[in-house]
């Protein structure tokens, strides 16, 4: 019984949570801002890179592949540290928030590239041929025929990627960005009580749950629309 009492006091102290909630909400807002902006830039990077990956320009294709391998195959934490602490030696001094967004976007872009590439590959080759046979260029074919059809199919994996990005953005605490998790840890030290972590976890859930629900919904709709 005493154990449960202690657990409740340490991790579920309503009084403390109530007191620090404004700070945590501010941290959550930062988390959302960093994730959303990085996801948007990541999608743009991924869109361009995936088109390079599916094109027949060998050199660019190889470069795109190296980029994807590099950023999917190394820890994000390392990438954040490199962008913030190593780039200054090359004369590139980025303020922490910018460095954070750069690292997150470039990392997310690598994942988005592969999501789009799989989506583009899943479109019937006849679509490209029909479009090219009308005299449409490769770029126009991508823009008007392939990408619009791809978007519908990649929306579920893209949303999953976004959920992962929201959680990964907590790694930005390593370069002193006060996103949700870092704020919670600061509150923990301040109040000498880890209830702030519990509150942060609930806030993460509140952000990600609607998205994961949305994915299931989209997947169901997609099944139906592909059925006929």
């Amino acid at each position: 019984m005493e154990g449960i009492q202690n657990l409740l006091e340490k991790y579920f102290s309503v009084g403390i949570i109530w007191e620090i909630l404004p700070y945590l909400l501010k941290g959550a807002l930062f988390t959302i801002i960093f994730s959303v902006s990085s996801e948007i830039i990541g999608i743009i990077i991924g869109l361009v890179t995936s088109m390079i990956r599916t094109s027949k320009i060998k050199v660019l294709n190889q470069l795109a592949m190296i980029y994807v391998d590099l950023f999917r195959g190394t820890p994000l934490l390392m990438q954040i540290i490199f962008v913030y602490y190593a780039l200054p030696y090359l004369g590139i001094n980025l303020p922490a928030p910018i460095a954070g967004i750069v690292a997150l976007s470039v990392n997310s872009g690598a994942y988005v590239t592969e999501i789009f590439r799989a989506g583009i590959d899943s479109i019937d080759k006849g679509q490209i041929e029909a479009s090219r046979s009308l005299g449409m260029s490769y770029i126009k074919t991508m823009r008007y025929i392939i990408i619009p059809q791809t978007f519908k199919r990649v929306l579920p994996p893209l949303t999953n990627e976004f959920v992962a990005l929201i959680k990964d953005s907590s790694l930005l605490s390593v370069i002193a960005i006060s996103e949700l998790l870092r704020t919670a840890r600061e509150m923990m030290t301040w109040k000498l009580n880890p209830s702030s972590l519990t509150a942060a976890a609930i806030l993460y859930l509140l952000i990600t749950l609607p998205l994961t629900r949305l994915v299931s919904h989209m997947e169901n709709k997609l099944k139906k629309s592909d059925a006929h």
Binding site: D124, G126, Q127, E129, A130, S131, R132, S133, L134, G135, M136, K140, Y144, I145, P148, Q149, K152
Partner: peptide, 30 residues
């Protein structure tokens, strides 16, 4: 290719566009 029309066995219509959209696409974009 603009001077040579082609029709395929598998139709290859663009599923995300209306019939009219399919027919007018190249007129508008090319």
């Amino acid at each position: 290719r603009q001077r040579v029309g082609m029709v395929f066995q598998a139709f290859n219509l663009f599923p995300h566009m209306t019939v009219l959209g399919n027919v007018t696409l190249a007129l508008l974009k090319v």
